[in-house]
């Protein structure tokens, strides 16, 4: 039926063994994080066995309540949901206007979007961005972080534009002739047809917002209450307490990793298709 089972040749066995080896190396750190998050600190630093001696579910409640991970999780969720919703709305509106209409400055607007994807000067931009947020009074809230994340919507914009191109123009032209305005056509014709594209793009935006570290860490340096999971966790590494709390670190890491892993396992087809599609262009 397939070549693998038909000819278990030496080369095929070797290839299979190699794939399994790579898979083990890839899975190892994640597996160690999950298993380690159920061990005691002594077990973790004393070279215990592979499986936890007793499953320490208490590590999670310790992280959740004691180390503020409930707060961090809420902040992460807020930032990710708001950034995803905002990015999708802003990018979909702009992509709709660019794909369906001509207006003065359209080429320039597209060129500006493209340029932001190629120029990178690193952390320099965080300072003027922060100053702007101070100027509008958003630097003490997570809205500043959300706005900056939304501003980086160029990738989503181009992704949605390519989805938009595959929606037949006849549909919105017919709606227009029937008296539907520019906005109504967008809301009741385009958006429903764009749903698959929005779903996939949303997955990508959510992932990068949830995983974002440097931006929220800069914005919440003096405001621990606003820290997200990535920031709160990294602070355990350089925290004030001298004793390393490995159990807490791993439980915290899992609180941050597991939601995304779950989303990935449920939707890995979408992730995989879009990543692959980006080269076929």
């Amino acid at each position: 039926m397939n070549r693998w089972s038909k000819r278990p040749s030496g080369a095929n066995v070797l290839a299979g063994a190699f794939l399994v080896l790579v898979a083990v190396v890839i899975l190892y750190p994640v597996l160690m994080a999950v298993l380690g998050s159920f061990k005691t600190n002594a077990e973790l630093s004393g070279g215990g066995s592979f499986w936890p001696a007793h499953w320490q579910f208490a590590n999670y409640s310790k992280a959740w309540k004691g180390a503020n991970f409930a707060r961090f999780s809420w902040n992460s969720l807020f930032v990710s949901v708001a950034a995803t919703a905002g990015t999708l709305i802003v990018a979909a509106m702009a992509a709709y206007a660019a794909d369906r209409r001509d207006f003065p400055g359209k080429r320039l607007a597209i060129a500006i979007q493209a340029s932001t994807m190629f120029i990178s000067i690193g952390a320099v931009v965080l300072k003027p961005q922060f100053d702007l947020m101070v100027a509008v009074g958003l630097h003490r809230t997570l809205w500043g972080v959300v706005l900056i994340l939304i501003a980086g919507h160029a990738g989503t914009y181009f992704m949605l534009a390519s989805f938009m191109r595959s929606i037949p123009r006849d549909l919105d032209e017919a709606a227009m002739i029937d008296g539907s305005g520019f906005f109504r056509t967008f809301r009741s014709i385009i958006l429903p047809l764009l749903k698959p594209g929005l779903g996939v793009a949303g997955l990508f935006v959510f992932r990068s917002a949830w995983n974002e570290y440097i931006l929220p860490s800069v914005f919440t340096m003096t405001n621990p209450k606003l820290q997200t999971l990535t920031v709160g966790l990294a602070n355990l590494r350089y925290g004030v307490s001298a004793a390393m709390q490995t159990d807490l670190m791993l439980a915290g890491a899992c609180i941050s990793l597991l939601p995304l892993l779950l989303v990935y396992l449920l939707a890995n087809k979408s992730f995989v298709q879009v990543t692959a599609g980006s080269v076929k262009g």
Binding site: V22, A23, I26, L27, P29, V30, M32, A33, R207, W210, N211, Y213, L229, T230, L233, A234, L236, R237, M249, L250, G252, A253, S256, L257, L260, L261, V263, Y264, L265, N268, F271, V272, T275
Partner: peptide, 17 residues
């Protein structure tokens, strides 16, 4: 699915691990 998984996970969180 296994090989692509690290791409989904946060680099900073995995650095702690």
């Amino acid at each position: 699915t296994i090989f692509f998984m690290p791409t989904v996970l946060s680099a900073s969180v995995m650095s702690i691990v």
